[in-house]
Design a protein around this nucleic acid. Structure first.
Length: 721
RNA sequence: GGGCGCUUAGCUCAGUUGGCUAGAGCAUCUCGUUUACACCGAGAGGGUCAGGGGUUCGAAUCCCUUAGCGCCCACCA
């Protein structure tokens, strides 16, 4: 055995990681008939550096992975990176803006190429950051969402769903982000409370001197009204239902209709219906076969349909003009201040404009039904269980998923239109001619929602493709061996975006849910309970912390004292505390190694009768601790496990046992020394194993000095001493 | 409007199916320069477990209720 240097500040994490990686310990050895353990890593978005949130998943998943690997299970942790469609495009467009350019200056191909290079550069940095955090994942199986094989599978899924009638193209109301210039799905819209004005406008009734007053926050949309709706039970308006109104400023005749969706208590109880620019109005218009008049275009300017006085004006300019003109006609009853929630783009924060557009949608209900069943039946279990309710709540109220995006970065939709006969061709590989013989075919210009591809991540990365779907074996056999995977661990914030979609698409594509357990963690906050973010300036840079206090400290700080699923509170003081713990482990080990000169380990049985009461106590405590940690890890109770090993190592082993044995170590007989050394050596070895999943670097560094033939990472998880 | 959660020591949080004098880390105080470690050790103080009611032999834990806080979802015109 080698003595340890006095200070471990220079612990060479890179060297230790290399020892593991070069040793091939991250690669699972498949054993026929042995149940494997597998986690697909949530692929970080390859458009920036890792932040503290990434450190959380790395820590929790790496703990789980190391534990299962030590239990001797063929263990796979598959890493990857996500192209992150809109987000990356927004980030790179900002880069371009610094050069005074837009994506249109570059053109589609050049923009894609530059974004690709940018992404690959970030991906490489991220991979090394994952290494610094100790991620023991199998780099030989790493994937990227845009690589050719993955893309092919994504296209195949699209085609399969199209053929099954689960993907359709339709002209419907969607969320339009004017900044990004694309449609968004409902969950990419963040609703924020904003101050506005509620304007009450009088609509004259045809052949009458009566009016119906409607209230609106967007007066300019009246130019596109095609009805006014009231609740069928509203006595005030019953007599008017079926009559016509003369729409001010346009003189169009619009009907007064009745619909259950109208809230009697809101505003005047009469609501103007603008099907082209409001989701609820669109629904009502479908029920009543109303005309749809688009008066705002995608660049937020008024269309010709809005009338010659308004056409070409920006919508907010038009709004003022509409109010002004209505006032001249004495048709504005009043204007109230009003707080309402306004949809904004998740990525660029711009206000969303609902409008009619031709997009691709996933018919989601049939998929959702099976996804609900898989959790209800217990095929998939959530930790913490309370998130199952959140999941059901969302799944049961789900609406069709708009999957086409008018951006350039991502999987281009595998649909081709024949310019001659109008045929729609959906194919994995680009066709060179149409059935009609025409070679004049054009690919759909749009790309797929990034979550459409990440939703297939758990099986696409394992080699599922068209052939496997038809019953053939996957190329390397991974799909058959590792799928369904064991645990999906990720942030609570992407439960709907990702977890829900993986379950739906997993069941659809492979017939099986993609994992048997979902483990969700919370948000990272600072000591004042504030969410950590760069803009607030309160974020902890995990790699910066690694340099100062070491990876082991930050990992412990992230799991200690936080129940799984709850928000994680972390501060520099907390991390410092666990740096102290690393030092404690180092020093205790250094002391033991100093006193193990010439020590040869022997089986416990040969010393059984010579143990002191204190020896037997620590042995018993070790076994109790081992059992508790094992149980906690099985239940994903990371904080319990961490707290147990901390308490055991510091306050039982160091404070009690090491002190108790000093007398024997310094003054005892040879036999007493031998027994004391046995206890120190074996409890230390066992403790290093228990500590290893949490604090892999210090423990491995010490282990390397204990004359062990194999590294700690592949040592056997302990049961007894 | 619907749903979920939180309220425990000065601070940040644990507390598994109800069961010994309610725990940890940090902070505070006292003592200790013992040959692993001051990034340490020994010890101490500190809590009507948000308020009220109920079930029970027994409640921080289960039920009801009130108050405050946070989050998520939703078509508040």
């Amino acid at each position: 055995m080698k003595e340890l240097p006095k200070h471990f500040d220079f612990l060479d994490q890179t060297k230790i990681y290399k020892l593991w990686e070069d040793g091939g310990y991250f690669k699972p050895v498949k054993k026929a008939g042995v149940k494997p353990f597998s986690i697909i890593m949530p692929p970080p978005n390859a458009n920036g550096f890792l932040h503290i949130g990434h450190a959380v998943f790395v820590t929790l998943e790496d703990i789980t992975i190391r534990y299962h690997r030590m239990k001797g299970e063929p263990t796979l942790w598959l890493p990857g990176a996500d192209h992150a469609g809109i987000q990356t495009q927004v980030v790179y467009e900002k880069e371009l803006l610094k050069q005074g350019k837009t994506r249109f200056d570059l053109g589609r191909d050049e923009f894609y190429k530059q974004t690709y290079d940018f992404t690959m550069g970030n991906k490489k940095i991220m991979e090394n950051q994952l290494r610094e955090l100790g991620a023991s994942c199998d780099w030989s199986r790493e994937h990227f969402t845009l690589e050719p094989d993955i893309s092919k599978s994504v296209y195949y899924t699209f085609k399969k769903m199209y053929d099954d009638g689960l993907i359709y193209r339709g002209e419907r109301i969607i969320n339009w982000c004017p900044r990004c210039g694309t449609a968004l799905s409902d969950i990419e819209v963040i609703h924020k409370e904003k101050e506005g004005k509620l304007t009450y406008i009088k609509y004259p009734i045809e052949n009458s001197n009566d009016f119906i007053t409607v209230a609106t926050t967007r007066p300019e949309t009246m130019l596109g009204d095609t009805a006014v709706a009231v609740n069928p039970g509203d006595k005030r308006y019953k007599k008017y239902i079926g009559l016509n109104l003369i729409l001010p400023l346009s003189s169009r005749k619009i009907p007064i209709i009745s619909d259950e969706a109208v809230d009697i208590t809101f505003g005047t109880g009469a609501v103007k219906i603008t099907p082209a620019h409001d989701p609820l109005d669109f629904e009502i218009s479908e029920r009543h076969n109303l005309d749809v008049i688009e008066i705002i275009s995608k660049d937020l300017k008024m269309t010709k349909e809005a009338g010659s006085k308004y056409s070409g004006l920006k919508y907010n300019v038009a709004r003022e003009k509409v109010i002004e003109n209505l006032k001249k006609l004495n048709l504005v009853e009043k204007q109230d201040n009003f707080i309402h929630s306004v949809g904004t783009c998740e990525r660029c924060k711009s206000t969303i404009e609902p409008l009619i557009s031709k997009q691709w949608f996933v018919k989601i209900k049939p998929l959702a039904e099976k996804a609900i069943k898989s959790v209800k039946s217990g095929e998939i279990k959530f930790t913490p269980k309370r998130y199952e309710k959140v999941y059901f709540n969302w799944m049961e109220n789900i609406r069709d998923w708009c999957i086409s995006r008018q951006i350039w970065w991502g999987h281009r939709i595998p649909v081709y239109y024949c310019q001659d006969c109008g045929e729609i061709i959906v194919e994995v590989e680009a066709p060179n001619k149409c059935k009609c013989g025409s070679k004049n075919i054009m690919q759909d210009p749009d790309t797929l929602d990034t979550w459409f591809s990440s939703g297939q991540w758990p099986f696409n990365t394992l080699g599922w493709d068209k052939e496997v779907s038809k019953g053939k074996k996957s190329k390397n056999g991974d799909f058959e061996y590792f799928y369904p995977t064991s645990v999906m661990e990720t942030g609570m914030d992407i439960l709907f975006f990702w977890v829900a979609r993986m379950i739906m698409l997993g069941i659809y594509c492979t017939g099986k849910p993609p994992f048997t357990e979902v483990v969700l963690h919370g948000l990272v906050r600072d000591n004042d309970r504030q969410k950590m973010s760069k803009s607030k300036g309160n974020s902890v840079d995990p790699l910066g912390i690694v340099e100062i206090y070491g990876t082991d400290a930050i990992r412990m700080a992230l799991v200690f004292g936080t129940g799984i699923g709850n928000d994680i509170v972390i501060s520099e003081d907390k991390i410092k505390g666990f740096r102290n713990f690393s030092t404690k482990i180092w020093n205790a080990s250094r002391y033991i190694l100093m006193n193990l000169d010439g020590y040869k380990n022997v089986p416990r049985g040969t010393l059984e009768k010579m143990f002191t009461k204190e020896d037997l106590w620590i042995i018993k405590e070790f076994e109790k601790t081992t059992e508790k940690i094992t149980n906690s890890l099985e239940k994903h109770n990371f904080h319990h496990a961490a707290e147990e090993i901390y308490e055991f190592f510091w306050h039982k082993f160091c404070d009690k046992t090491i002190e108790d044995t000093k007398k024997r170590i310094y003054e005892g007989s040879d036999k007493e020394k031998m027994v004391a050394k046995w206890v120190l050596f074996n409890v230390l070895s066992g403790s290093l194993k228990l500590l290893h999943p949490f604090m892999p670097f210090v423990t491995e560094a010490i282990w390397q000095n204990l004359n062990n033939k194999t590294p700690l990472i592949v040592s056997e998880w302990p049961k007894k001493l």
